[in-house]
Design a protein around this nucleic acid. Structure first.
Length: 202
DNA sequence: GGTAGGATTACG
DNA sequence: GTAATCCTACCT
């Protein structure tokens, strides 16, 4: 008979993120984003869709210069970059590479095992797979806002990452072009887990 | 000081 | 297709 070995999740450290964003973005698929709430509770989602943004990339917020909005992208690997979009949604990025070079992975979709608390009053009963199918939706579900911009992603902080456990099922990765941008539209810097219902778009 | 527009989403 | 909604980058 088999013993069910419950692997202790291994936190992702800054040095693992201190690589090219084009390596880190696909490597984050299957990893877990952990949100530690002020009340001590914890939300977890499996990363199923990512995009890469970097220096020299016309779609990157830091393409022109460092500003009050995008400064976190210039920080060393392991820092969060959170921004507000269209006045109502937040987006979460994981900063990569070395300090001074703007680069980050946009987390575009999460898959939940456990349904997060539904903060919306009016809406109800969205399929679990759709709750975080999109960068704005996942920040809403994980209670991520601008106050978490520039935080270190490590245990004990409001957010951190955990490595994929190799005992999990294998998956295929699809690489394609990014969504919602008007510049750099042909760069194939979006990755998602094939056949995953929690992905924002195919 | 004013304003155009955005790495989105939900709804018609 | 397009409204919602607000912060910010850039211009005057």
């Amino acid at each position: 008979m088999h013993e069910i070995m419950t692997m202790k999740p291994i936190p992702i450290t800054a040095d693992w993120l201190a690589r090219s964003v084009l390596e880190v973005a696909p490597d984050l698929l299957g990893c877990t984003l952990v949100r530690q709430l002020p009340d001590g509770s914890c939300l977890r989602g499996r990363i199923v869709e990512t995009e890469a943004y970097m220096a020299g990339d016309p779609a990157c917020h830091a393409y022109r210069r460092r500003t009050d909005r995008n400064w976190a992208m210039f920080e060393p690997a392991g820092i969060s970059y959170v921004f507000l979009i269209y006045g109502m949604y937040h987006c979460l990025n994981v900063v990569t590479d070395v300090g001074g070079l703007p680069s980050a992975v946009l987390i575009r979709a999460l898959q939940f095992d456990v349904r997060p608390p539904d903060l919306l009053v009016g809406k109800r009963s969205e399929p679990l797979a759709k709750v975080a199918a999109g960068p704005g939706k996942l920040c809403r579900a994980m209670q991520i806002d601008l106050s978490l911009n520039g935080t270190m992603l490590e245990p004990g902080q409001p957010m951190y990452l955990e490595h994929r456990d190799d005992a999990g099922e294998a998956f295929s990765v699809v690489q394609t072009t990014r969504i919602g941008i008007t510049q750099g539209v042909d760069l194939p810097w979006r990755w998602y887990i094939q056949d995953c219902a929690a992905v924002s778009r195919l």
